[in-house]
């Protein structure tokens, strides 16, 4: 076992423990959020081990650095000291949750048991978007960094519009009515 694989298992353990901490921590919201940070950061480390350096940086920057910080900010802004721990009344939801969990597990196990194919079988470049993008915009060159703006220019632009909509939406939602 190389050091790389050993580190993967260590970070995987931290990620699972952090997720369990978020799930099972009923008393303290802030501690739950910190558990989530542990998961996010160890996922970032796993991305480094998998060779996805850019994603690792973005993962830590966006998830650990922005999203969970905003969660904590809201928790503090609303000053929620203790969690409202009301056990779920609906048995239906619990059964549903266990069913979905079983379904995902089943899917995973069948996918692993069949062995993974040597090459992707799905359509390339977000399905047919690539052709649309190719028709709309000039293709970028084949360097790795430009692939985002080459093959994926259409999803990329749509993502920017989505972000703009989210900015406007959150401002409208959270602002106090000024009469």
């Amino acid at each position: 076992m190389t050091i790389e694989v050993a580190l993967f298992y260590v970070f995987a353990l931290v990620a699972v423990l952090g997720a369990l901490g978020l799930l099972l921590n009923f008393r303290n919201l802030v501690a739950g959020a910190i558990c989530l940070v542990a998961t996010m950061v160890s996922l970032g480390a796993i991305y480094v081990l998998l060779g996805a350096y850019f994603l690792a940086a973005v993962q830590i920057m966006v998830y650990a650095g922005a999203i969970v910080v905003v969660f904590l900010f809201v928790i503090m802004l609303l000053n929620i000291r203790t969690d409202v721990f009301t056990p779920s009344q609906q048995l239906l939801f619990k059964i549903f949750g266990i069913l979905i969990a079983g379904f995902v597990l089943f899917q995973f196990l069948t996918a692993i048991a069949g062995g993974l194919p040597a090459f992707p079988t799905t359509p390339d470049g977000f399905g047919g978007y690539r052709d649309i993008a190719g028709a709309l915009f000039a293709r970028g060159d084949a360097r790795e960094g430009t692939q985002v703006v080459g093959d994926f220019i259409l999803p990329f632009e749509i993502a920017s519009l989505l972000l703009l909509a989210a900015i406007v939406g959150s401002v409208v939602l959270a602002k106090r009515r000024l009469e």
Partner: peptide
């Protein structure tokens, strides 16, 4: 990796609106 980038964008948008 590009898929993940899109997932992160969507997650960010979702959190911004959701927390609002």
């Amino acid at each position: 990796q590009v898929f993940v980038l899109m997932v992160i964008v969507v997650a960010t948008a979702e959190v911004a609106v959701g927390l609002g």
